[in-house]
Write a protein that binds this DNA or RNA. Structure first.
Lengths: 345, 345
DNA sequence: CTGAAAGCGCTTACAG
DNA sequence: CTGAAAGCGCTTACAG
């Protein structure tokens, strides 16, 4: 095949200048309608596509967004957080809908970020997805701010007010989940998940949990909270620690579905029946949740909507428009692991 | 912040020409070592990054690969095939390791492809991931070939020999799965999944299944095969059709894990105990497989390795090197749904 | 409405 | 070892 057609080739065939071709292809009203259509027809015939590198270089933008997914270093390579994957899907679609391309990259928190996408003019803005330990990369965010990078981060509100974060209302999610368990007459509700400021999202879910208890006149018992990171194995371990502690509990609210699934495995292994003896509520509504046994009652985050807001927000940032923090409402998905419903599965 | 530093800024500070800066930054031995280091230090200080648009325009390549994930139009938006997601992870990593960036896009089979990535110089090559109906996009592939695009497609070997495909050995996978069930004394093994040429991967799994039966002296019974596409719902329906048919069977081999999970749900609903009354083996080893109840015995495709081969292959294509079709071996993962193992869960 | 020209920020052949 | 210069393929201000 001959090498790619350029605007000069079209100009030659159309008998006009290259400038006119460029204008016509961008559908400029400056160009005579007839000429414009003729040029567009030739472009189509030659299978011409504007060279993005040339165009971007000239326009000084890239019409591209970068998505950085920062994984927990503890997760093994193949096991990507399913929640992120769901977000990835909706972000990709939202980006495409806005006429942008999406550069995707997975980053270990430990390693140096290739966050130079914007520096090298490969992307106009960056979306950060991370569930991990915020402390570890706080200084990296500072660097981004310093460099005046356009970026949004998914998750809890950040200490640094210059960081724009979009996230689900974790406090509300924790509140609703616990409220649901309380409504089912559970009094001793354990919480499995990190409650420190190192995991702001988990912490907010915990605080929502505590507030729901408080509303019911129950004081949160620190003995019923055990740390866990977002993996099945960690949930399994935390549940065992809880069981070994000998403290009485009739329900568990976990900071994530993965933790819940691990906890259920631990309970089963000890012969504890879910939900009859212990009710379990998870968080995220990952695909596995509905296939778990029993099917997991959980808090659903609307990833579809979240992806749209995330993309819309970076775009606003890029355009210099006003943007603000935003909390997305979550909602409860009742299945059978909480004992409220034994229809499914 | 001041606008981005360019090589001219560095040249000015270093008291050399812009050409020398460019050479120094690419670490050319042509530049005096000392000068080179001085220039690199200044670049670092200024936080300089080569402008990719300018560089790519000049070099006529983009150091970028595009990944097109073509979904089944039947799947709802949020439910992306988990197997693809796993591939996405490994492809992203393999791409990064090779110093390339990855542009990701989801495409409905129905709509027109934005497969103009390479045309517009945004990507040097394309990786196509699709589990769907090959017929539907055969002519789109023809167009890609015609345009001399560098692309690899994941999946079964393609009729058109000009198409480079990399895939797992579906025939072997089907053979091994069936062999395993036969070894467990199952004689009446049903197959759930499309066996037509419209789904070449499913068809190959079916053919492997048939050959394994043949090796055991069993003639495949067409009454035991029912079509299903790659969704849980379709598996559920197919299993019901099978149950309604009244034909005897003691095991089911499904063309995918999602189908298996749907089938198990149908069996449970009818009071059929898995694996005691009917053994089930799936295909893919998606994350859900190990959490299913009972945990799913399945055929694992090594997505890590597959991603690497895929990336390596497009890269070779781009460099004009020799590449050939390639089949990746699969292996059996024994869990409890086949009755061979009741340890887990 | 159209064309000639400048320039986006690089890389590299050419000349020294 | 270094510099001046051309050129990658566009977009757009300027002049007509």
């Amino acid at each position: 095949m001959a090498s790619k057609a350029t605007s000069i080739d079209i100009a030659y065939r159309a008998g006009v200048s290259q400038s006119t071709v460029s204008r016509a292809l961008r559908n400029s009203p400056l160009v005579n309608l007839e000429t414009r259509q003729r040029i567009q027809a030739i472009a189509k015939e030659l299978n011409y596509k504007v060279d993005k590198n040339a165009s971007n270089l000239r326009m000084q933008n890239s019409q591209t967004l970068a998505l950085l997914i920062c994984e927990d270093p503890t997760n093994d390579e193949s096991m990507i957080n399913p929640f992120f994957l769901s977000m990835l899907g909706s972000i990709t679609r939202a980006t495409a809908r806005q006429g942008y391309d999406l550069l995707v990259s997975f980053q270990q928190l430990s390693t140096d970020w290739h966050a130079d996408y914007e520096d090298s003019n490969k992307a106009d803005g960056i979306i950060l997805l991370g569930y991990g330990d915020y402390m570890d990369y706080a200084h990296k965010l500072d660097k981004l701010i310093e460099k005046n990078t356009h970026f949004v981060i998914w998750g809890a509100e950040h200490n640094n007010k210059a960081v724009l974060s979009i996230g689900c209302d974790n406090h509300q999610g924790g509140f609703v989940a616990t409220e649901h368990l309380l409504g089912l007459e559970h009094k001793h509700i354990a919480f499995l998940g990190d409650s420190s400021s190192r995991s702001p999202e988990f912490r907010d879910r915990y605080l929502g949990h505590v507030d729901a208890l408080k509303s019911a006149g129950i004081e949160a018992d620190k003995q019923l909270q055990h740390d866990a990171i977002n993996t099945e194995a960690s949930g399994y371990n935390a549940a065992n620690v809880l069981l070994d502690s000998g403290v009485t509990f009739d329900a568990i609210f976990t900071a994530s579905d993965l933790i819940a699934i691990g906890a259920i495995r631990a309970l089963k292994k000890r012969g504890v029946v879910v939900p009859d003896q212990v009710a379990v509520v998870g968080y995220d509504d990952i695909p596995v949740a509905s296939f778990a046994n029993p099917a997991l009652t959980t808090i659903k985050q609307d990833t579809q909507f979240a992806g749209e807001i995330l993309v819309e927000s970076v775009l606003k940032l890029i355009r210099g428009q006003e943007v603000s923090q935003r909390l997305i409402k979550t909602h409860l998905v009742v299945r059978s692991s909480c004992g409220a419903n034994v229809e499914d599965n």
